[in-house]
Simulated scan of single mutants.
Amino acid sequence: MKIFLKSILLTLPLLCLPSTAEQWRSVTTDSQLNYEVTFQGLPIAGQFKRFSVIYSPAAKLLVKVDVGSADMSDDELNSEIANADWFDTGRFSEATFSSESLNAQSNASQDFIAAGNLNLKGVSEPVDVPFLWRQDAENPGRAIMSGQLTLQRSDFSIGIGDWSSGEQIGIDVSVSFIVHMQRQTDELTH
């Protein structure tokens, strides 16, 4: 019994020591978060100019998007999509995706699916985000995360009222991203 207590007492300080966890953060100046919808059958593109990504391999993917940074390269369109029928940026300024699990695809060590919830315009929906992870061979502290998925804007009450039918503006929204990532080392305590 004394040996057991001694072992616990000697191990306790080790449990409180800081440890390092691998974490990656987006380099926003080099990254892109794009979307594409159809307007009367023709593609029209936009992008979010302000967003951040935090990735902890085998643990968590967290994406935060400043919805007011949506840019469709037209001031009139940008003003319209900020309104209540669309993004309602006055009430819902941020969208977040937070993974609940990260799974490697069967035969690829660089293909993953982050399953989690997307919170957009006050609505939370389950979403799977497929992505390719490529670490820079010359600089192991850098990597690129890229991928593409399709969302239905109606799931998040985007384009309501006269816009909800999908006749003029399609319901499907293609989202693509190329995110340059930088390795970080955070001190964590248990």
Rank of each mutant, 00 (worst) to 15 (best):
Y35I: 07
Y35G: 09
E36H: 05
E36F: 01
E36M: 10
V37N: 03
V37C: 00
V37D: 01
V37F: 01
T38M: 04
T38E: 12
T38Y: 02
T38D: 09
F39E: 14
G41A: 07
G41P: 01
G41S: 03
P43E: 03
I44N: 08
I44V: 13
A45P: 10
G46D: 05
G46I: 06
Q47S: 08
Q47P: 00
F48E: 08
K49I: 08
K49G: 08
R50P: 00
F51P: 07
F51G: 02
F51Y: 05
F51D: 03
S52D: 13
S52N: 13
S52W: 07
S52F: 03
V53E: 09
V53T: 14
I54H: 11
I54S: 13
I54R: 12
Y55W: 13
Y55H: 08
S56C: 11
S56W: 07
A58C: 02
A58R: 09
A58N: 10
A58G: 02
A59R: 13
K60R: 15
K60Y: 11
K60L: 12
V63Q: 05
V63G: 07
K64W: 04
V65D: 11
D66M: 06
D66N: 11
D66T: 06
V67Q: 08
G68F: 01
G68I: 00
S69A: 03
S69W: 02
D71C: 04
D71V: 04
D71M: 06
M72S: 04
S73F: 09
D74I: 06
D75K: 11
D75Y: 05
D75E: 13
E76K: 14
E76Y: 11
N78E: 09
S79W: 04
E80L: 14
I81V: 15
I81C: 04
N83C: 03
A84Y: 10
A84N: 13
A84D: 13
D85Y: 10
W86A: 02
F87P: 09
D88R: 05
D88A: 07
D88L: 00
T89E: 09
T89G: 10
T89D: 12
G90H: 11
G90W: 06
R91T: 07
F92L: 08
F92W: 13
S93D: 14
S93N: 12
E94V: 00
E94H: 10
E94L: 01
E94F: 04
A95Q: 02
A95K: 04
A95C: 02
F97Y: 09
S99A: 08
S99H: 01
E100T: 04
E100N: 12
E100K: 11
S101N: 11
S101A: 14
L102C: 02
L102G: 01
N103D: 07
N103P: 00
A104T: 14
A104M: 13
A104D: 03
Q105W: 10
Q105N: 09
S106V: 15
S106T: 15
S106N: 11
N107D: 14
N107K: 12
S109G: 08
S109R: 13
S109K: 15
Q110W: 11
D111L: 15
D111G: 01
